[in-house]
C-alpha cells in the first residue's frame, strides 16, 4: 500500500489536529526550560515532532503558527517566521529519508537542521536587527566582534554554536517521544510508516 503524500494530501484532519499540539509543545517546552532554569531554548520540539510524523508541510505550518502566536506578545517573532518554517521543512525531509530512526542519525540530522536555521536566521538578524536578538547570546556576538570579526561571521558563529546545542536536544527529545508512539496511531499518519518499520527491526 502506498500513501499519497504532498501538499494536497498531507492536511488530513488528523494531521491538522497535530498542528495546535505542536505549537503548544513549543510553548510548553520553553516554559519548562524556564521553570527548570536550563541553559537552552528547546522551543522547536513541537515543530520537529509534527514535521517528523506529519511531514514537511505540517512541520512548516506548525513553525509558522508558533511564531504568529508568539508575535501577539512580541512582534519581533514575526521576523523569524522563516526560521521556524525552515526547521519544519528540513526535519520533515530528513525524516522522510529515515534520518530519525536511530540516535546517531538524529545527531547528524541536528547538525544539518542547525545549519539550515543558521543560514536562514543570520541574514534576518544582521539586516533587520543589526546583529542583535535581545537575548544573552548577543554577548557572544559582541565578543566575536571585539576579537576583530566581521558582523556576518560573528552572528553566524554565535548562531551555529547555539543552534547545534539546542537542536541536538530538541531533535533527540522529539525522537524519543515518537519512539513511544503506538504503531496504531502512527499508521494513521501519512509519514508514520517510517517509524513503524524502524520499530520492528
Amino acid at each position: 500500500m502506498t500513501t499519497k503524500r504532498g501538499l494536497k494530501y498531507d492536511f488530513s484532519l488528523i494531521a491538522i489536529l497535530l498542528i495546535p499540539i505542536g505549537v503548544a509543545i513549543n510553548f510548553v517546552g520553553a516554559q519548562i526550560v524556564l521553570l527548570l532554569k536550563l541553559p537552552v531554548y528547546l522551543d522547536t520540539i513541537g515543530t520537529a515532532l509534527t514535521a517528523m510524523i506529519g511531514g514537511p508541510w505540517i512541520g512548516m505550518v506548525t513553525g509558522l503558527c508558533t511564531n504568529l502566536v508568539k508575535g501577539i506578545l512580541n512582534p519581533v517573532s514575526f521576523a523569524f517566521i522563516p526560521v521556524q518554517m525552515g526547521v519544519g521543512l528540513v526535519v520533515g525531509l530528513l525524516a522522510m529519508s529515515g534520518m530519525f530512526t536511530k540516535a546517531w542519525k538524529v545527531i547528524i540530522a541536528a547538525v544539518l537542521v542547525s545549519l539550515t536555521s543558521t543560514i536562514i536566521a543570520s541574514p534576518i538578524q544582521v539586516l533587520m536587527f543589526g546583529g542583535a536578538t535581545g537575548n544573552s547570546s548577543d554577548a557572544l556576538v559582541a565578543t566575536f566582534l571585539a576579537s576583530g570579526q566581521q558582523i556576518w561571521t560573528a552572528v553566524f558563529s554565535t548562531k551555529i554554536i547555539n543552534e547545534c546545542i539546542d537542536k541536538v536536544f530538541c531533535l533527540l527529545i522529539a525522537f524519543f517521544i515518537v519512539k513511544k508512539m503506538s504503531p496504531r496511531y502512527l499508521s494513521k499518519l501519512n509519514y508514520g510508516s517510517i517509524f513503524i518499520k524502524s520499530k520492528k527491526q
Binding site: I25, I32, L49, I173, I177, K180, M181
Partner: peptide, 11 residues
C-alpha cells in the same frame, strides 16, 4: 526532569 515532564503531556 525535562523529558518525564514533557512526554506524558505530549503523548
Amino acid at each position: 526532569a525535562f523529558l518525564p515532564t514533557l512526554s506524558p503531556l505530549i503523548l
